[in-house]
Design a binder for these strands. Structure first.
Lengths: 272, 272
DNA sequence: TCCGGGTGGGATTGTAAAAAATTTACCTCA
DNA sequence: TGAGGTAAATTTTTTACAATCCCACCCGGA
C-alpha cells in the first residue's frame, strides 16, 4: 500500500491543510462510519469505479459519486466505502478557509457530499487529469498545488475575523461564550454567526461541539487506560454524562462501544 | 462566648484527637443537623439541662440525654440540640482508636448515642465532677487528660493493623481496594473486616465513604466558586452524579441546597 | 449590501436522579 | 478459616428539568 501526506506551504497552506494520497489500501471490511471531524474535504478518485455513500442504518446504497466530490461539514456520521481497491487523492481544507476555493457559502455544502463539477466546474476534471498524469505521489502533490492555486484565483486570504474565531475555538473548546467571542471580534453576535456560517458551514457553537468531540477522540487515541469521567472534564464537557451523550450523537457509539470497534484509522470505524 | 480547643499529646494523643470546651454559644436556631463525620465523641454536658435528639423528619423529640453521652459512628445525619445555653466539654477520639477507652466493640455504638455511664460506669461522672470543679478551660483540659488516662488503664495503643488501614483510607479515599488493603495488612479480607468493625464501628468501605464525603465537605469550605464535577473527581467520586447521590445520602441535602443552608460550623447545618 | 436589533423556539448547560451491567465487599454457615 | 451467596458499590449509560444561551427569522437603518 502507498500512503503519502503533504502539507502545502503558504500561500496555498492558508487554504489547504493537507494532501493525502493512497493506493492499494485493503481493509478487511467494506463500509466505514466516517465521524464528523470538522473538516471540509475535496476527494479525487483516480479510479473509474464509483464510490458509495450508504444509509446509516440499513447500509443500503444512498448515493454514488465518481471522479471528484466535496464533502462539507457534518454534525452526523456518514457511512461510506471503506476504500478497497481505491486510489484517492484527498485535499483537506484549513478550517474556516475553504470558501476562498469553493467560491460559495459553505452552508451550501453542510451535511452533504456534492459532485465536484457542481462546485468547481471543469477545472476540477483538469485537476484530476493532472493527477492521473503525474506518475509519482510527489509529482501529484506538486500538480495539485499548482492547480489549486490557479482555481483559487487571487483570493488566498481567508476572512480574518472568522479565522480568529475558529482559532479561539480550537484553542479553548470547552469554556467559550459566543458573547465573549463576538465582543473580541468586534462584530455583533448575530453578524459574527452569519459570517461564521458562511465561511465554516456551521454556527460557532455547533462547530465548537465538533472540535470538542474531536479532542475527545484524540485523547482516546493517546491515553492508555481511560477514565471517562476525567477525559470528559479534560475535554471541556460538563461531566461524563454529557460527554457520553455528545459522543453518541456524533459517533453513534457509546464510548466503550467505540473503543471495542475502532481500528487503526481515526474517525473511520468499520461497520460493514 | 468561650470556645477552647486542646490537642492532647501522646500517649493520650494516640486515643484522643481533640478536646473542645464551649460555653455561651447562642446560635439563631434551635436544631442542627449533625452530619456523619467519621468521629466518635464523648460529650460531657456541664449544665443540668438534658439535650435532645430529634426525629430527622418531624423534628419531634426522640431521645434525651443528661450529663454525659457517647456518640458512635454514623452513616446518617442526626438532628440535635443546636447548643443554646450549653456548656459542653467534647472529647473527640482518634479514628479507629476509641476502643482502648470504651472497652467494648465499637459496633455496639454505631448509629447510636448512648448514656455515658452505660459505657464507662461511675468514672464518667467523676470526670464530669472534675470538669465542673476546674475553673478555667485550661484546668478542665488538664483534668480531662488525667481522668481519661486513668480510665484507659494501661492500654493506650490502638490496634496497629486497624490503625494502618484507617490511615490508608484517610490518605487515599477514592481509589482503594479492600483486597489490596488486606494484602498489605497481612490478614485475610474477612479477618480485617472483623477487626476493623470492632475498632472503628463500621466496615472499611462504609468508613471510606464517610471520609470521602468529609473530604468533599472540607473542599466546599475551602473553594470559592465551586464546579461540582471537578470537586467530585478531586474527592475520588466516579463522577458528579455519584457525588450528588452520596452527598444526599449522608447529608440529606443536595450540594447546592447544602451551600445555601450551611452556616459557619462545619458538619452542623441549621434545620429548625 | 453591510450591519445591528428584537423575538421566540430550540439547544446546551448545570444540576440531579437513576437504570443496567459488572465488580467488590461483606456476611453466613458450616 | 473457607466457600459461596447476597448485598452493595462501581462503572457505564440514560434521562429529567430548569435556567441560560444560541441562533433562525424577520426587520430597519446606513
Amino acid at each position: 500500500m502507498t500512503l503519502k501526506f503533504h502539507t502545502p506551504l503558504p500561500p496555498l497552506g492558508h487554504l489547504v491543510s493537507l494532501f493525502t494520497y493512497y493506493k492499494g489500501y485493503q481493509p478487511g471490511h467494506r463500509i466505514d462510519r466516517f465521524l464528523p471531524d470538522g473538516n471540509v474535504e475535496l476527494v479525487i478518485d483516480l479510479t473509474d469505479f464509483p464510490k458509495q455513500v450508504y444509509d446509516n442504518e440499513t447500509l443500503a446504497v444512498r448515493h454514488s459519486f465518481r471522479r471528484a466530490w466535496i464533502s462539507g461539514l457534518r454534525k452526523e456520521f456518514i457511512s461510506i466505502h471503506a476504500g478497497q481497491d481505491a486510489e484517492m487523492f484527498v485535499i483537506t481544507f484549513q478550517k474556516g478557509a475553504a470558501r476562498a476555493i469553493t467560491g460559495m457559502p459553505l452552508t451550501e455544502l453542510t451535511e452533504q457530499v456534492v459532485e465536484g463539477d457542481l462546485v468547481f466546474g471543469p477545472p476540477i476534471l483538469a485537476l484530476r487529469e493532472a493527477l492521473l498524469e503525474a506518475v509519482s505521489p510527489e509529482t501529484k502533490m506538486r500538480a495539485a498545488e499548482r492547480r489549486l492555486l490557479a482555481m483559487a484565483g487571487g483570493d488566498l486570504q481567508p476572512n480574518p475575523f472568522v479565522q480568529y474565531a475558529v482559532n479561539q475555538i480550537l484553542l479553548h473548546p470547552g469554556q467559550l461564550s459566543l458573547e465573549a467571542l463576538s465582543n473580541k471580534v468586534g462584530y455583533s453576535q448575530k453578524h459574527l454567526i452569519q459570517l461564521f456560517k458562511e465561511h465554516v458551514g456551521l454556527p460557532p457553537k455547533a462547530f465548537l461541539r465538533i472540535i470538542r468531540f474531536q479532542r475527545a477522540i484524540a485523547e482516546i487515541e493517546q491515553r492508555g487506560g481511560i477514565e471517562w469521567s476525567h477525559l470528559a472534564l479534560d475535554c471541556g464537557y460538563y461531566d461524563q454524562a454529557h460527554f457520553i451523550r455528545d459522543f453518541k450523537r456524533f459517533s453513534g457509539f457509546t464510548p466503550e462501544e467505540y473503543l471495542r470497534r475502532k481500528n487503526g484509522v481515526v474517525n473511520y470505524v468499520p461497520v460493514g
